[in-house]
């Protein structure tokens, strides 16, 4: 915990709570990568869970930020990662289909 000259600062605590909320999302993205059976299902875990995990981490850091410019930069990073991850997810899935990689199916 941050105990500065002013003691425990409220925004530090609230920010840290959001960052901690983000951790299980990253964790489940990684568990999904390890447990899911094929390239397509793994993409689900990586794009969805990690995006939301990053969202909570960014939110926590934004609450702790000291200037509005810093907040704007953090949200810009989030937006760019969101677009890049959705786009690369699509491109990886598209490339897998082109190589005729059959999606894993139940039975």
């Amino acid at each position: 915990m941050y105990v500065g000259q002013g003691g425990l600062i409220m925004t530090e605590v609230v920010g840290m709570v959001f960052i901690i909320i983000g951790i299980p999302f990253f964790l489940s993205g990684t568990i999904g990568l390890l447990r899911l059976p094929d390239i397509y299902t793994r993409l689900h875990a990586l794009t969805k869970a990690d995006n939301v995990g990053l969202g909570f981490v960014i939110l926590g850091l934004a609450i702790q930020a000291t200037s509005w410019l810093e907040v704007a930069k953090l949200f810009l990073i989030w937006f760019l990662v969101l677009v890049a991850s959705a786009t690369s997810c699509h491109l990886v899935a598209d490339a897998a289909l082109r190589r005729n990689i059959k999606p894993w199916t139940k039975e």
């Binding site: 447990r35 299902t41 939301v52 894993w104 139940k106």
Partner: peptide, 24 residues
């Protein structure tokens, strides 16, 4: 929707039976 999507993935991959039925 994005948060629901992440929670959906989380719930599926954490269950021991891995309840998925994927397809195109």
């Amino acid at each position: 929707k994005s948060i629901l999507g992440a929670l959906d993935v989380m719930a599926r991959v954490l269950k021991p039976r891995l309840p998925i039925d994927p397809g195109l």
